[in-house]
């Protein structure tokens, strides 16, 4: 019953985003991701903050974070693709040339975005116990240091945000 309901919820969530198989597959994938937890009755576990009160995760925790993130991103390929064929081609292209993962030029071309992602991952990690990442960062600092920090984040947004037109997916609805 629990498995059936979970599948219904995720598939309906997918369908809600639009009458396209890509959204259905996105929902289906998310439901499948929950399957092992449901079958082992572990779906209400793992709700606490990861690596609570610690600076770094354990290797096991790190691996689980990586797996969860990768699976979520994989399902987003379907969410954002024009059609199923497009999504599958996109995924195939990722794995077509594994050599490219070891080519430094690829990372060099995306160095700015990699630096920004690292900065925001660190920020999110230290703020992971709060509702917002920067909620408690700098509360004990002098006010001008804290405000400088906030201003710097605003500056990074102003300097790096995408300014070319990219239609927001929810504008379709």
């Amino acid at each position: 019953m629990k498995v059936r309901n979970t599948f219904i919820i995720f598939i309906v969530s997918g369908f809600w985003h639009g009458a396209n198989w890509t959204f259905i597959i996105w929902g289906l994938l998310n439901a499948i991701y929950f399957l092992p937890l449901l079958l082992t009755n572990n779906n209400r576990n793992n709700l606490a903050v990861v690596a609570k009160d610690k600076y770094l995760p354990t290797p096991k925790e790190f691996f689980l974070i990586l797996i969860t993130f990768s699976m979520t991103v994989l399902s987003w390929v379907f969410f954002r693709a024009e059609n199923v064929e497009h999504a599958l081609q996109y995924i195939l292209d990722i794995f077509k040339d594994p050599q490219s993962f070891y080519t430094m030029a690829i990372y060099y071309n995306y160095r700015t975005i990699i630096l920004l992602i690292l900065f925001f991952i660190i920020l999110e990690w230290f703020g992971r116990e709060n509702q917002y990442a920067i909620e408690k960062i700098g509360l004990k600092w002098k006010w001008y240091f804290r405000w400088f920090f906030y201003s710097f984040i605003v500056f990074l947004i102003g300097m790096f945000m995408q300014t070319a037109e990219t239609p927001f997916i929810y504008f379709q609805f």
Partner: peptide, 25 residues
């Protein structure tokens, strides 16, 4: 304070950073 800080950072950043770190300037 934030507005002034933004302007100061913008000036320093724009002067010393390479172009790939100044996409919106």
């Amino acid at each position: 304070f934030s507005a002034v800080t933004y302007i100061i950072i913008l000036f320093i950043w724009g002067t010393f950073m390479p172009s790939y770190l100044t996409p919106n300037l």
